[in-house]
Write a protein that binds this DNA or RNA. Structure first.
Lengths: 231, 231
DNA sequence: TCCAAAATTAACAATTTCTTAATATTTGTG
DNA sequence: CACAAATATTAAGAAATTGTTAATTTTGGA
């Protein structure tokens, strides 16, 4: 993951610079363009891994740019717009935008969305079903099982488990879990995660006070234990 | 790393001199400015590696300066301010400040933050796992192993070992270890590190009284022995 | 709109870790 | 070898983190 390239297109230089700053901080290489033609040129020549595209552009409309780029490649696009109507949203998504951010936006949130879109890129989507130990998570049917028996999870619980189960052994801190399970626009208390973890454990741990699947890493976060390991 | 340049901007001459003294001591070359216009001129002409910027300036507001500088470069900025409200903090960070210190501040802490910001600049992060001799440190899973067997470390112990293991053979003095493992806002006793090192040794040294991995350098600090060396 | 389920927050308890201080040991030096 | 300075060790109290419960707010559907 050595510095993916992100093309940021907006006619407002300040906006572009602000976004660039935040993306740089996340380790991305940032290309910029201030109008539609320049955006097209960059998209064709540099083949960025993702494009952040303002809907309102001088000369050529953002929707046209989006459509044109879409005809030439599958690069993910995050739309940026002042308008917030559902029609715009649908139009943008219909044209192949992967996400949608309305102005004024927090650069922090945009950066989170860029991370999210790029993260779910490689290999499109993972397998429909993942098994580890006695836990089975089926993303297609949105079901979870413990030793073959279905367990009923709330949406947040399902996402939490899903995120951790995809990378067994990896420690996720609360901020990471919030970003994945509660959404990057969540502004609340990060210990909310604790309660969801607690509820998850009650549903899937044989002995919730001695967790076998979801382990706490003191001072760091939580992780789903890789299968077979018991330490 | 030959003397990075830091621009310090504050209308109070004493403050500037105090900060300059501490930064000089750390080996930085320090430029100074007492008002907004001078700050802008310096920023444009000298291209410093980092700017310490007071929020309250005569003539031009610090936020305006910050915004203007941001339009012209990606130089990291540490905000300095008497106000401490969350809105100010957000405004500053939204404008691209990299860190925030509220007055009155300890010059020691400011210097530490300058080091921290400059350190995380080259960015990215190292490998997920590092091995030396019988020691393995996995940053992804937040685990450490001795000859393949997991050893359970506290957060501070893990950070300490992690820092040293990344640069085997390098001596770290107590202040450096405190900055990395306890945080640059730590105000406590120097010798706290000794206890953590002791506890680390108990967990990972086959014979803690004859350390093989974490060696004491009398009068200097500690180092993680490079693999294969035994002296 | 109203209800039920879910999510979030707040408060307090339980646990783990950190820090300090006091004492012992080791190291370097004249 | 003796002395001073630096480091090691121990144990206890302080601080931080997490677990848990319960009350409140929000959400989504009938």
């Amino acid at each position: 993951m050595a510095g993916k390239r992100v093309l940021v297109v907006d006619d407002d230089v300040k906006t572009v610079e602000l976004v660039k700053l935040y993306l740089n901080r996340d380790g991305y290489r940032v290309l910029t363009a201030n109008d539609g033609l320049e955006a097209l040129r960059q998209a064709r020549e540099a083949h960025p891994d993702l494009i952040v595209l303002d809907l309102m552009l001088p000369g050529m409309d953002g929707l046209d740019i989006c459509r044109t780029i879409r005809e030439e490649s599958d690069v993910p696009i995050i739309m940026l717009t002042a308008r917030a109507t559902d029609e715009d949203k649908l139009a943008g998504l219909g044209l192949g935008a992967d996400d949608y951010v309305t102005k004024p936006f927090s650069p922090r949130e945009l950066a989170a969305r860029v991370r999210a879109v790029l993260r779910r890129l490689p290999g499109e989507r993972g397998p429909d079903e993942i098994k580890h130990g006695g836990i089975t998570v089926n993303f297609r049917s949105h079901e979870a099982f413990l030793d073959g028996n279905p367990i009923s999870l709330t949406p947040v619980e399902f996402k939490l488990l899903g995120v951790m189960v995809k990378e067994p052994g990896r420690v996720f801190n609360r901020e990471q879990l919030i970003e994945e399970a509660l959404g990057y626009d969540f502004e609340g208390f990060n210990r909310t995660i604790d309660v969801h973890i607690l509820n998850l454990r009650r549903k899937l741990e044989p002995d919730p006070s001695h967790p076998r699947y979801i382990r706490t890493i003191y001072g760091a976060g939580y992780k789903f234990l890789e299968a077979g390991r018991d330490t």
